[in-house]
Design a binder for these strands. Structure first.
Length: 572
RNA sequence: CGGGGCGUGGCGCAGUUUGGCUAGCGCGCCUGCCUUGGGAGCAGGAGGCCGGAGGUUCAAAUCCUCUCGCCCCGACCA
């Protein structure tokens, strides 16, 4: 490719729309442009990178007997009604109607379609296991698209679906995908950590997310410093510490005091001069419309995913002021567990608090010296708090540490959630009709590219790993006006092409600085510079983008050196 | 969805508070000269109904109303 013809408009300055490094560099290097919030057009260089990642994914999916298919983006509402997700998906789903008024959506994911596809064709256990995957655009009307490819409303995703006869073979599919994912990210030059995760709206029980640690990550990942445990913070388990004999003594008498206007833990602890950890936060929720109370320690945050899961409810939301008044006889901010008549669920940590400060269920009042059993009872204790760095590991005696992570992939065991709902069954060896046991496995292709940049850049631009670089080599003659340089560059370019090496010739009549800056910004792993002086000595210069290391070599050594380098793989 | 901010040539911005004459600057772009190992220099030039609609006014980028788009924080989310 000739640089003079390449449609890759580079920018000296960063467009104001970009905040994080990968987004800035993808715009500056001319890889993509925004067309609407959360939607991007890929330009030639950007597309080449995307295609390379896709190709790696294909190879690894095929290696575990995945078969590639391509399913429609536009999906009929009926299928989603069958699974019950037409309602559940809510505003995040792009919906549309055809001329007859029939309802469709732009697929946010493809469980329904693939289940429908398989149920009509798979009849026998002999056809299993079946692993189908596609690389396809997905559409989610995110409330807040951001950070370029990190969270788009249109994005490219590889999704595989496995169909098995039982949970044992699902297990094999699951771990096959898990290990394929490790290889995929490794080949893309990424260190992606599998962590235990929540399955969210997709459903299912066992699931891992593959996380690339980066400051710009939207998730908090917790790692045990001592053992292998790693989990998304929203999923990380809390630990129930047994109450020690004699831990809680000297119960003081109850006392209700005026706390005018102090409705948050911060205000109360400041007003009364107590520690937040000696307060109990009482949150009133509506679980499928019914009010319940949830208690967490004052310095803890409640994890709604855990509460929702524990209650097994479909909808969970913080109660409105009116409901709170009805339940507590007080304004929001003064609720407490004493005398409440609704079910009351408490985090494990509540067991340990003696002489707690709680809302008095009376406007502008709090109650001091509240104690479990003596003053209030709970319906159940469970794990409700948002786990934080510094908390104990649920698996060993270690301590959890936190890091930001970008979720580049996730693997789920779905079980029979969709096959049950959509009657996707097969006949087993006993001739019995049995639901297919499913798994699903996603990789965000664009997000993976963004994550690679987040981990591979310097002040001059992107540093592509060889495996996904848009081109491997750029040939830069210092001056195109110099006949000798121009023709030497041209012949090297042709020679590299003949060797099947992906190469760009910067044939522009620009000053060398401009070409060097663009080469660094775009991030070609290898640059060959051809200058007048070295050329007279029969030499050219190879520069490795990652290390900025330079090497002057005889002209005839250039191609073999590059070939060796490419063959030896991905160490740059 | 709540809070905040921004829309002025391709990109980055000034001008808006206190309305006033041909709307500026840097980068990029075009032409010519010159230059060629890290985003050169000189000269000349093209390009903007100031996001859109309505209103106030002798006069609106600037004031008012509505509207659209984009970004950030939060809530939420495979």
């Amino acid at each position: 490719m000739l640089m003079s013809q390449l449609y890759s408009p580079t920018l000296r300055e960063t467009p104001s729309e970009a905040e994080i490094i990968s987004h800035k560099l993808m715009l500056r290097a001319g890889l993509m442009r925004r067309s609407a919030a959360g939607m991007y057009a890929f330009l030639p260089l950007g597309l080449r990178v995307i295609r390379k990642v896709e190709q790696i994914i294909r190879e690894e999916m095929n290696a575990i007997d995945g078969q590639e298919v391509l399913m429609p983006i536009i999906q009929p509402a009926e299928l989603w009604e069958e699974s019950g997700r037409w309602k559940d998906y809510g505003d995040e789903m792009f919906r549309l109607k055809d001329r007859q008024g029939r309802q469709f959506c732009l697929g946010p994911t493809h469980e329904e379609i693939v289940t429908a596809l398989v149920r009509s064709e798979v009849r026998s256990y002999r056809q299993l296991p079946l692993r189908l995957y596609q690389i396809q655009n997905k559409y989610r009307d995110e409330r807040r698209p951001r950070f370029g490819l990190m969270r788009g409303r249109e994005f490219i995703m590889k999704d595989m679906y496995s169909f098995d006869r039982d949970h044992e073979t699902l297990d094999q599919s699951y771990w096959a995908a898990y290990h394929a994912y490790k290889r995929i990210f490794e080949r893309c030059g990424l260190e992606a950590h599998p962590v235990e995760a929540d399955s969210g709206a997709i459903g299912g029980d066992v699931t891992h997310e593959f996380m690339v640690l980066a400051e710009s990550g939207e998730d908090l990942v917790l790692f045990c410093e001592a053992c292998e445990y790693a989990a998304n913070a929203e999923r990380a388990e809390g630990v129930r510490v047994p109450v020690q004999e004699g831990e809680k003594t000297a119960f003081e008498p109850l006392e209700t005091v005026a706390t005018p206007g102090a409705s948050t833990i911060d205000q109360i602890s400041a007003f009364l001069g107590v520690e937040p950890k000696d307060c109990i936060k009482t949150l009133i929720y509506l679980a499928d419309g019914k009010p319940i109370a949830a208690l967490v320690r004052g310095d803890h945050e409640l994890n709604e995913i855990k509460l929702k899961k524990f209650l097994q409810c479909v909808e969970l939301e913080l109660a409105d002021d009116e409901t709170i008044f009805k339940v507590t006889k007080a304004r929001t901010g003064f609720a407490g567990p004493v005398g409440l008549s609704i079910p009351c669920y408490a985090d494990y940590a509540i067991e340990h608090i003696a002489n707690a400060v709680v809302g008095a269920n009376k406007d502008d009042h709090h109650t001091l010296n509240v104690n479990l059993d003596r003053d209030f009872q709970v319906t159940a204790f469970t794990d409700l708090k948002e786990t934080q760095p510094g908390d104990p590991c649920p698996r060993c005696s270690g301590t959890l540490q936190g890091a930001r992570g970008v979720e580049v992939g996730q693997v789920f065991k779905l079980g029979t959630k969709y096959s049950d709902a959509m009657s996707a069954t097969f006949l087993n060896e006993d001739g019995k009709e049995t639901p297919l046991v499913m798994g699903c496995y996603g990789i965000g292709v664009g997000r993976t590219v963004a994550a690679v940049i987040e981990k591979n850049y310097d002040e001059d631009g992107i540093i592509w790993p060889l495996s996904i670089a848009p081109y491997q080599v750029v040939v830069v003659p210092v001056s195109m006006k110099d006949e000798a340089q121009a023709s030497a560059a041209q012949s090297l370019y042709e020679e590299l092409q003949a060797e099947g090496i992906e190469v760009v010739l910067d044939d522009r009549d620009e000053r060398p600085g401009v070409k060097f800056k663009d080469a660094d910004l775009i991030g070609f792993p290898i640059r060959v510079t051809i200058g007048a002086k070295s050329l007279e000595q029969g030499q050219m210069e190879i520069i490795w983008r990652r290390t900025k290391e330079k090497q002057s070599l005889p002209i005839e050594a250039i191609v073999p050196t590059i070939k060796n380098f490419l063959r030896d793989g991905d160490q740059i």
